[in-house]
Amino acid sequence: MTNLSPFDIQARPNRLLAQALSAVLFVVCIGLYMQTSIARHRENPEDRVVPSGHQLLAGVRSAVLEPAEEDDYIAPDNASTWERLRHSMIWKDTASSGKRFFISLGLLIPFVVLAVHIGLFPWFGAGFLRFFLFFDKIVALSLLPILFIAFGIDEWSKIALIVIGVAPTMILDVTQMVKAVPQEQIVKAFTLDANNFDVAYRVVFRQVMPQVINSLRLNLKPMMLFLFAGEMIAASDGLAYRIAIMRRHMGMDVILPYVLWVALLLFLIDFSLRTINRRLHPWFQA
């Protein structure tokens, strides 16, 4: 018999019940929103603070199928949905933000490699570890003005902000992972005639790789946060830029879909990384 006490650690809710419980908070949020929206629209049918379902749908349609205000593009009447989507506001913003995001992601790779060296090679540890321990405590957003001065207000300042914001934490994280690889494994590898680089890349790096991916998954949100900070202050396109612009116009019908779109994108990236991790490292799940 299913134990229904929520304070029973040993309770085993069945699958259906567990799924229903998972859905409850989503339903409550949607319900509260709808109720608030209806109440506000009853007082003011033109209310834009809590848009109704229709307003949201219209906002999504304009974001997905219409170009941004600043664009000169005018879709011909017979343009296909795909054509409209390719020139749409959300596509443009997603592509701009995505480019910044993925370039930053790529730039983090050398730092991960450096972290493996810091954790493994004593000379690297002596040279870099304290510096990154200190650097990690610097609030990255406080460097934003310096970055704007150094890199200008174009792409590189935003990319630099993401890398500077996330890299020290990732370096320290990966260094800890490397140090946690059992010493027996390293000794064993040397007895199998591995040289230093064999040990670093074919023993240690391979073993910490799934954890590095997990660390990256945890850092997705901070990365997006730094990207948003940069875009909100100085950008001419991007998801955060659009949200900032729409705030001026009280365009909640666009802001809300954008917020959900960003969350969905992050969820998909996270899901992809998790799937890749599971496929590439089946031994890690055990």
Binding site: V187, K188, A189, V203, Q207
Partner: peptide, 12 residues
């Protein structure tokens, strides 16, 4: 050659 008590094989 070396055979430790634990972690004797590469898990990956």
């Amino acid at each position: 050659g070396y055979v430790p008590q634990r972690y004797s094989l590469f898990p990956d």
